[in-house]
Amino acid sequence: MKISTKGRYGLRALIDLAISNDKGYVSLADISDRQDLSLNYLESIFANLKHAGLVIGMAGAQGGYVLSKPAKNITLFDILTVLEGDMSVYDNVGDETKIRSFLNRNVWDAVDENVNQILTQTTLEDVIDEIEIQNLSAGCSEL
């Protein structure tokens, strides 16, 4: 079971963007630098995110990207379905034998449901809050 490079890098970049969101448009070069991600790859990912309406882009010297709506209104589910497509752990391919349809209903759908619950309940703001709490406690332990 694997999340694609696009899903992993895209989420990381979008969290970075959300952290800086109150500072106006953020350039992909800055995200590339902070997150150790290739600029070319970020450009292609952000074209996707823009097309899906999650970010707004502005061209020019002061340009870059901002979130299209407040971080509390964007869930992990919104983000990962754009980056990964369907988040189910299985494809409905092959013959639908009795045993397969039984396991789809009783095992794999139950896994999907549990994952989807986390993804739809967690917003980008929750993720950022969590990071700030961690940074704060890391800062305190250094004192």
Partner: peptide, 21 residues
């Protein structure tokens, strides 16, 4: 890493179901 915590949560959501069945 800003995203690892998310992957840990997703991973737990999968394992919680798979390990209990």
């Amino acid at each position: 890493c800003v995203s690892r915590q998310v992957w840990i949560q997703v991973s737990n959501a999968i394992a919680d179901v798979a390990d209990s069945l």
